[in-house]
Design a protein around this nucleic acid. Structure first.
Length: 726
DNA sequence: CGGCTACTATTTTTT
DNA sequence: ATAGTAGCCG
């Protein structure tokens, strides 16, 4: 007679394939789950969580499940609750950053922070970097805050301190980075602020420095599960080692072939070397794909095979062969957009639902022309990504006001709001006050509250600061009394004149901003309703909101979805279009310069494997880039897809009857200057350099040709160079 | 101080 | 093309 518990365990395993089962029921010790695209990885993760609890190995508070996105965390939580049949409050299912922030809310005082520390997003961090650069009298044009901050961020992700950076200085730039890093760190501590990277670094610090803290968390989390392990950076890796290194109950899930975030510090070696870190690790490979047709999988497998140093995986499916992959060449990005949207329209007419269709592209800028055509044809669509809710200026302003009320040391928040809306506080006065605060080692708030004491501040500025701080003092009092966040926010927006200023604008845009603010007030009220009474609600709200990129995106049903390939990771659609398959666009020219071709190829793999049954790849011979016409070559990735998997009729050009006349004639204006026989856009072959395309013609019989082999652009004498037309 | 013009730098970005 | 910013002028 099976016990009810045994029944439930059996139920959990029902419908799982062999390797999935192995992963779910793995007992103690390290576990590496190599989950190919569409192999049911979320299923394995959630079932394993439930299995750990059901089998009595751990209570639900003793499991730590880590994801990269809030969305993934939320989905995992929901699915685990379904499996367990109850709420999972107290279960740590969250992002790296949220888990670290939560840890630090308790432990930050050990590092000299208060529990109310502010979390800076990238824009805030950049602004502070700029201030530090200016303080050090560095030319911010030659050394941009963005570039310097990227370096700092990079160092932090590798757990390298400012001193570490300074020890290895090889250029003026690196010297500046070291100096700014050092100043930046001091400023952050002084302002009681942490950026996204700090959350990870400081969490590692606290675990390394304090044995009792580390031991406590090690005992608390008896099992650690990590999703998307291929995207972890060194700090995250270290954090996991510290938490799980002792009991070694670390299960990681990932796919090295889908590592596409190295530019953000992700280190693919983490997953490749897992077995070196844990020689006794159990390894499970999930290769059966439940998403796509065999044709699509074959294409993906073929493309990724061109990368070196991958963990061998071969996706297969029981779904069947399916249709060939469609490959289309178009004249330019406009025809490409018209083609894609035309196909979308056709599919919709055939009864396909809009939400089953997605269009991917390499860069955000490519979406515009597609959107134009969708609007023209009145097809409902949504763009995923782009400007996030919490990155909008009005939202950041409102949150900066709240931040300043909770953390009067926060100079970044202060400078953001002091003159927003305009109240006659200019750059000069602002700097005088912040410099004075720094010099006197007092908070900006206190410095601004007594402007008369600030040297060389003009009478008008003194008055402006006094008025502003009068308002703020009143608000601060209410904040200190623990007024609900929603009410406080409402008061902030009205009493500071923010709403008035927007209303006075009387523009369509301002109207939208007001609506966004209303949305934010609603979010705050929802938070108030569910908050634990007695907690510092304002601080908790701000820290929580800082780690969420987007307001709950109610994914509108019935819309065609547009997004970058990066955003597509983890998603799936019946029908997928990937546009811009041109060398320079995809793979991106900058990636080519930096030798990051393999990562681009993984991105291609990600894109292809999103499609369930229908995949169309398109490229344009000519494209407007940064306002000027570029002539690209078909992406090398296209040629890595076996010919027989596609519907291409000829090796290179697919001609659609009537789709285009002659190349030169299709250019309405300004035909390229004639020289010998060559025309811009023409396919040519060179005896030594191989195949290429004419990208320019210069006086004196010189043709400019971009060659496929190495992507180089060369100027050649048309008359003498060994060039033939193709 | 604030508004205007001119110039420039443009990948991807879960947090 | 375009957005964001630096610098100049009222």
């Amino acid at each position: 007679m099976p016990t009810p518990a045994a029944d439930r365990l059996e139920e959990l395993l029902a419908g799982l394939n062999e390797p999935q089962r192995d992963a779910v029921t793995h007992g103690d010790g390290p576990l590496l789950i190599l989950a190919g695209a569409g192999s049911g990885k979320t299923r394995v993760l959630t079932h394993r969580l439930a299995w750990l609890v059901h089998s009595g190995r751990a209570s639900h508070q003793e499991v730590l499940a880590i994801t990269f996105t809030n969305k993934a965390a939320q989905e995992m939580r929901n699915r685990v609750e379904l499996l367990l049949g109850r709420r999972t409050r107290g279960m740590w299912v969250m992002t790296f950053h949220a888990a670290c922030a939560r840890m630090l809310r308790a432990e930050a005082p050990r590092l000299g922070y208060t529990r109310q520390f502010t979390i800076y997003d990238q824009a805030d961090a950049r602004r502070l970097t700029k201030r530090c650069l200016e303080e050090l009298n560095v030319d911010t044009k030659r050394f941009t805050p963005a570039a310097v901050h990227n370096q700092i961020s990079d160092a932090k992700n590798k757990l390298r301190s400012a001193d570490d950076v300074r020890e290895l200085v090889g250029s003026r730039f690196e010297e500046i980075v070291g100096d700014v890093y050092d100043a930046y760190e001091r400023e952050m501590l002084r302002m009681n602020a942490m950026d996204f990277d700090d959350l990870l670094v400081r969490a590692v610090n606290v675990l390394e420095l304090f044995d009792e803290v580390r031991e406590r968390y090690q005992q608390t989390f008896r099992y650690v599960l990590v999703d998307e392990y291929q995207d972890t950076n060194h700090a995250q890796y270290k954090w996991l080692q510290l938490l799980a290194g002792e009991h070694r109950n670390l299960a990681v899930v990932g796919d090295d072939a889908q590592s596409v975030y190295s530019f953000r510090g992700a280190d693919i070696r983490n997953i490749l070397d897992f077995q070196d870190d844990f020689p006794d690790a159990a390894v499970v490979k999930l290769e059966q794909n439940y998403r796509s047709t065999q044709t699509i999988l074959d294409a993906a497998n073929a493309v990724i095979r061109n990368n070196r140093g991958q963990i061998a995986k071969d996706l297969w499916t029981e779904v069947g062969q399916g249709d060939p992959i469609r490959v289309r060449e178009l004249d330019d990005e406009r025809s490409e957009a018209r083609f894609v949207v035309g196909e979308v329209q056709r599919l919709i007419d055939e009864g396909v639902s809009r939400q089953e269709i997605a269009v991917f592209y390499r860069t955000n800028a490519q979406s515009r022309v597609i959107e134009d055509v969708l609007v023209q044809r009145d097809i409902g669509y949504q763009v995923v990504g782009g400007t996030k809710f919490y990155e909008r200026a009005e939202i950041k302003d409102a949150l900066a006001y709240l931040t300043l009320l909770g953390n009067p040391q926060d100079v970044v928040a202060f400078t953001r709001v002091a003159n927003t809306p305009r109240r006659g506080i200019g750059q000069t006065s602002m700097s005088r006050v912040t410099a004075f605060a720094t010099a006197m080692d007092m908070s900006v708030w206190d410095a601004a509250a007594n402007p008369a004491a600030v040297p060389s501040l003009g009478a008008a500025a003194i008055k402006a600061f006094s008025r502003f701080m009068g308002t703020m003092e009143g608000l601060r009092e209410r904040a200190a009394q623990g007024v609900p966040v929603g009410d406080l926010l409402e008061a902030v927006l009205h009493e500071t004149g923010y709403v008035d200023a927007l209303e006075a604008e009387r523009t369509f845009e301002a109207q939208g901003r007001l609506e966004n603010l209303t949305e934010l007030v609603n979010t705050a009220r929802e938070f108030d309703a569910s908050a634990d009474p007695g907690e510092d609600t304002l601080d908790v709200f701000l820290q929580q909101v800082a780690l969420v990129a987007d307001a709950d995106t109610r994914e509108d049903e019935g819309l065609v979805t547009l997004m970058t390939l990066h955003n597509a990771k983890g998603l799936e659609y019946e029908i997928v279009f990937i546009t811009g398959f041109e060398d320079g666009v995809f793979p991106h020219s900058r990636a080519l310069d930096e030798g990051a071709l393999e990562e681009e190829r993984r991105l291609c793999y990600v894109g292809i494997t999103r499609a369930k049954r229908d995949l169309t790849l398109s490229y344009a011979r000519q494209r407007m880039v940064f306002g000027s016409q570029q002539y690209g070559l078909r992406s090398r990735f296209l040629d890595e897809i076996p010919f027989e998997l596609t519907d291409r009729e000829q090796t290179d050009v697919v001609r659609q009857p009537g789709a285009r006349v002659s190349w030169a004639a299709s250019r309405a204006d300004a035909p390229p200057p004639e020289a010998v026989d060559f025309r811009i856009g023409q396919d040519v072959a060179h005896a030594a350099f191989g195949e290429g395309v004419v990208t320019g013609i210069e006086p004196g019989g010189i043709v400019v040709i971009r060659f496929a082999r190495d992507g180089s652009e060369r100027k050649l004498m048309a008359e003498y160079a060994p060039i033939t037309r193709r």
